[in-house]
């Protein structure tokens, strides 16, 4: 409908709604652009508060320092490992739980669902979990980043919903007549038919692992094992730069401003993998949210 043909009330509504939307767009973009531009600006320009939307006195100092700051790269490598192994375990376990729960002929299905769903609303809390990890001797152990969060019940439920509505019962009946077992049916029929939901799972879990911070802070004190987010916290929030890091001699007196620009380049470098991947996989994420909105 053309704007001119609208009634007065509708004109006001459209203008207000579009203005708000545009405002929200700007508000969302500004911090993102500022961080990105700062990371490419001269440390002095940042110190003087001259960077807003575009880089000022273009410089790669932040990235040069970043490339020399080894704790970040150790963190990077660790995070990649935790993400790969963790996500693989997550997706496998999620399918193993979701598939039986999607089968109407699975005796005890209701009980299993209550058993799982109860943990979404009630938990023993931070301290008993901490004590459990200690008793299991998982401190400073690779698996502490994988096992405690090996399964998300939320993901099990959306995956189960997907199986239920996308794998016709007739397929199972037909496969059974051919002597196909349940496991075989799952791996050869159900999983290949469910690639979208499996992609959703991979993405949700992978982002979760990449961004995980608190467990690592609690359970990993060994510097060699710390994931990226823990290293980032030291740099960004605690302003703690590793003691054995030698700043470029050129900057001996400008340590402070280099430490500042290092913050911007780390933010960009740590968020980039997720941000670059995101526009391509956006539709899968959205699918996941929409499935989650369905009542199981």
């Amino acid at each position: 409908m053309r704007f001119g043909s609208l009634s007065k009330g509708d004109k006001v509504y459209t203008v207000v709604s579009n203005t708000l939307l545009f405002f929200l767009l700007l508000v969302t973009l500004y911090p993102l652009l500022n961080v990105l531009s700062s990371s490419f600006s001269d440390p002095k320009a940042i110190g003087a508060g001259r960077v807003a939307i575009f880089p000022v006195d273009f410089s790669l100092d932040g990235y040069r320092e970043l490339s020399r700051y080894t704790p970040i790269w150790v963190g990077y490598k660790n995070s990649i490992m935790y993400t790969i192994v963790g996500t693989f375990v997550n997706v496998t376990l999620t399918i193993m739980a979701a598939y039986p729960l999607s089968r109407k002929d699975f005796r005890g299905r209701g009980l299993f669902i209550v058993f799982f769903a109860f943990t979404m609303y009630f938990s023993g809390g931070m301290i008993p979990s901490y004590m459990l990890i200690r008793n299991l001797n998982l401190f400073n152990n690779f698996w502490v980043m994988v096992l405690p969060g090996a399964l998300s019940v939320y993901n099990v439920i959306i995956t189960r919903t997907y199986f239920q509505s996308n794998i016709p019962d007739s397929f199972l009946e037909a496969a059974r007549l051919d002597g196909c077992t349940d496991v075989k049916f799952l791996t050869q029929v159900a999983i290949p038919l469910s690639t979208p939901i499996i992609a959703v799972n991979f993405l949700f879990y992978a982002v979760g692992h990449w961004n995980a911070f608190f467990d690592a802070m609690l359970y990993l004190s060994d510097t060699k094992m710390k994931p990226l987010q823990v290293v980032l916290r030291d740099i960004l929030i605690e302003s703690r730069i590793s003691a054995d890091f030698n700043f470029d001699s050129k900057y001996a007196e400008a340590k402070q401003s280099i430490a500042e620009i290092l913050k911007y380049s780390t933010i960009v470098a740590s968020t980039l993998p997720v941000m670059l991947m995101y526009p391509f996989v956006q539709k899968y994420f959205i699918k996941g949210i929409m499935l989650g909105g369905l009542k199981g």
Binding site: L24, T28, L29, L32, V35, V207, N211, L232, S270, Y278
Partner: peptide, 20 residues
């Protein structure tokens, strides 16, 4: 644009707040 910040980790969000 508006979905993107969702994927930024809490550590980085608080780091950005500190800077901004």
């Amino acid at each position: 644009v508006t979905y993107a910040p969702h994927f930024i980790s809490t550590v980085v969000i608080v780091g950005m707040l500190t800077q901004l």
